[in-house]
Every structure is written in C-alpha cells, then in structure tokens.
Simulated assay, not measured.
Amino acid sequence: MSDSTTPSPTRALSEQGVSIWLDDLSRERLRTGNLAELVASRDVVGVTTNPTIFAAAVSKGDAYDEQLAALAAAGTPAEEAVWTIVTDDVRAAADVLRPVFDATDGVDGRVSIEVDPRLARDTDATVALAQQLWKTVDRPNVMIKIPATVEGLPAITRTLAEGISVNVTLIFSLERYAAVIDAFFAGVEGAKAAGLDLSKLGSVASFFLSRVDTAVDKALTAVGSPEALEARGTAALANARLAYELFQERFASDRWQALADAGAHVQRPLWASTGTKNPDYSDTMYVTELVAADEVNTMPEKTLDAVADHGVVTGDTIAGTFESSREHLRAIESFGVSMAEVTAKLESDGVDSFVTSWEELLDTITAGLERQAGSGS
C-alpha cells in the first residue's frame, strides 16, 4: 500500500518519461469536465481518436441532439455533418489540453483526428484532407492521423513538410516502422527547407499491440505444441521493444541531429491498442511492460483505470530486453508463424475495420439528422 510520498502509478509513468494519452473522446466527456478531470487526476496529457471512437460517442445518449437538429435544419449533408461534429469535438479537446501543450513546449497536449480511412490507399486525397482538417480545427496542438500504408508514407512526408503535425497510425511491423521514420525525417527536412518553425511540429508513430498478440496467439494455438502454446502473449511486447530499439538507433543519427539542432522534436513511439483482449493476461501488461523515456501510451479509459488502480511501475522495463525480444520472435517464426504475414494482414484488416467504423458513423449521423428533421426541431 502506497504512502503519501509514493507517486500514483500514472504519476510514476510520467516521471519515467511516458506520456499518457486517452484513447477516447466524446461530447459528453467534454461537457461534464471529465477530460479536464483526467488531466488533473490521472496525468493525461493527450487524446487520440478514430472513427470507432466517434461512432460509439454519437450513438450513445443525447449529447449531439442539439447540433444534429441545427445541422438537419440547415439541410447539411451527412458527410459534412460528420466532419462538423468531429472537428468541433477535437477543437474543444484541444482547448482543454492547450495549457499542457504550452507547458511542454508543444511535446504533449495534443489531440489527434484521423483522415477518412477510405483514403488510406490514396496519397493525394490524404494530403488534401489533412490540410483541410488542419485548417478547420485551427489549433496548433492538433495532430492529423495518417495510416502507415505504402500510400500513406509519402502523404506523411508531404503533410509534415507543410508544418502540419502528424500521428502515424496502424503500424504493426518493424519494417514499416523504419519506413515511417524515414518519411518523418524527409518531412521535417522539407519543413526546414521551407523555413518553418520546427519546434511547432509534432509527430508520433503509433505501434499497435494487442491486435498482434491476438493474431499470433491464434496461430500458435493452431500449432498446438506445448512450446508453441508457451510462446503465446510474447509477440506484441517483443515487437514493441524492438521498435523502441529502432527508435533509439535512428534518432541517434547525424541526420536526426541536424534536425534537432534546428529545433525539431523527436517522433516518439506511441503504444496503441493497449487494452488487453485476452482475459488471461494482465490488464496493464501493455503499459507497465513498456516503460521508457520519450514514448507515449494511449489507453482506453478501462486500461487507464486499471493502471491507476493496480499498475506497478518499477522503472524502465524496455532497457536490456532487446536480445530476449529477438529470441521470442525467432521462436514464434520457428513454429511456422510468419510475423511478416501476420502484420501485413493486420494492416489490411485495420484499414478495413476503420472503414467499417466510418460507415457506421455516417449511418449514425444520417439517422440522427433524419430523426431531428422528422421531429420538427
């Protein structure tokens, strides 16, 4: 049991250099002051969103009814209404987090908004929408989420080169993460060449966790040998730890140092998909087993509550793990499970999942507009 001199688990994470971001946003959370409360009491210093989050938010309660009524009265098309609602929420959250942004010189206090996932394979359309969202939200602490697809990589570079902060999402493999870092370097170099203030430019690289274990565990279970079964639950942490090793190596380069000298901030690795899907696993494992400086952990509220309640933060849990992480992945490969195939499918499925959620959000808004128009509000 902790005494008054022992920091809370969330405070301990912050002291270790882990930035806690909330993987959720809703109008209700903003109106009740819950987001501000989490900033004050749970050390939350950022927010991430995606179509799934907004689809859930709009489908619950009546927080959006007034705005839906106004949009319906104006004859606003459903897709335009989606962006009006989403950008309003992100702008309001950015205002809540602005003091954090100012206090950390732009490192934290960030709120992410995702481009239309249907554009994940269209570089030019992704860049155009990123520019539009940046102007519409009109807050320096917003980040535009762009998926790390092959087509997304040049979009990341072009968007950063224009001075627009980027959260790179849906990263599953070490190979793709290396390409994301290259895209980041090129983008910041472009911004530097354009004479932009690099200290205002922010970026994170969102590396997904629980989805990796779910997919690899399924394959290992199918193998069925005692050794294969014993390897379950090791893939995501090993993958993430080796991503952190890559982060350390690439941001120790002369290429990066030239950008840092010009005022640029590192692109921090962000651990995403941190809610444990297997009930046999610790509900804090994707947090407490990945503690190191210069990283972000974005948590759904259930995971944040679990960490605050019983998370054990003992210090850096990544240093010294790189060789054992390689051994874990080699063992998985030895059972005939290809990490390259698993991560490629996860990326494809992730894009499809976000498209489905986007369509659900569009359907929810369409139904809401029709309901409000029918009520004569």
Rank of each mutant, 00 (worst) to 15 (best):
S2N: 15
T6N: 11
P7E: 08
L13E: 00
G17Q: 04
S19H: 15
I20K: 03
I20E: 00
R27G: 05
V39P: 04
V39I: 09
V45D: 08
V45G: 06
V47Y: 05
V47G: 03
P51L: 08
P51F: 07
T52F: 09
T52S: 13
I53P: 02
S59H: 08
E66T: 11
Q67F: 11
L71C: 04
L71Q: 02
L71V: 02
A74F: 09
P77I: 04
P77K: 07
P77L: 07
P77C: 02
A81E: 06
A81L: 08
V82R: 04
W83N: 12
W83D: 15
V86T: 04
T87R: 07
D88H: 14
D89T: 08
D89C: 09
R91K: 14
A92H: 05
R98D: 14
D102H: 10
G106L: 08
D108H: 09
D108I: 05
G109R: 07
S112L: 04
I113H: 06
E114V: 13
V115Y: 06
A120P: 09
A120V: 09
R121F: 15
D122C: 12
A125E: 13
A128Q: 13
A130P: 05
N141W: 07
I146V: 12
P147I: 06
G152I: 06
G152Y: 05
P154V: 09
A155Y: 02
R158E: 10
L160D: 00
S165A: 08
N167K: 00
V168A: 00
V168E: 02
T169D: 01
Y177V: 00
A179R: 11
V180M: 03
V180E: 00
I181F: 01
V188E: 03
E189T: 02
E189M: 03
G190H: 03
K192D: 00
A194T: 01
G195I: 02
G195S: 05
D197M: 04
S210I: 08
A219S: 15
P226H: 11
A228C: 11
E230A: 14
A236S: 11
L237D: 00
L246N: 02
E249F: 08
R250W: 00
F251K: 01
A252R: 01
S253C: 00
R255L: 00
A258V: 02
A258T: 01
A260L: 00
A262L: 03
G263T: 01
V266C: 06
Q267I: 01
D283I: 08
V291F: 10
V291I: 14
A292M: 10
A292F: 09
A292S: 13
N297D: 10
M299Y: 05
M299W: 06
P300N: 07
P300E: 07
P300L: 04
T303G: 05
D305Q: 13
A308H: 03
D309M: 15
H310N: 13
T314M: 13
G320H: 10
S325H: 11
E327Q: 15
L329M: 03
L329A: 04
F335C: 12
M339A: 12
A340C: 10
K345C: 14
S348Q: 15
D352F: 14
F354G: 06
T356E: 14
I365V: 12
I365L: 08
T366V: 04
G368W: 01
L369K: 02
E370A: 13
E370V: 13
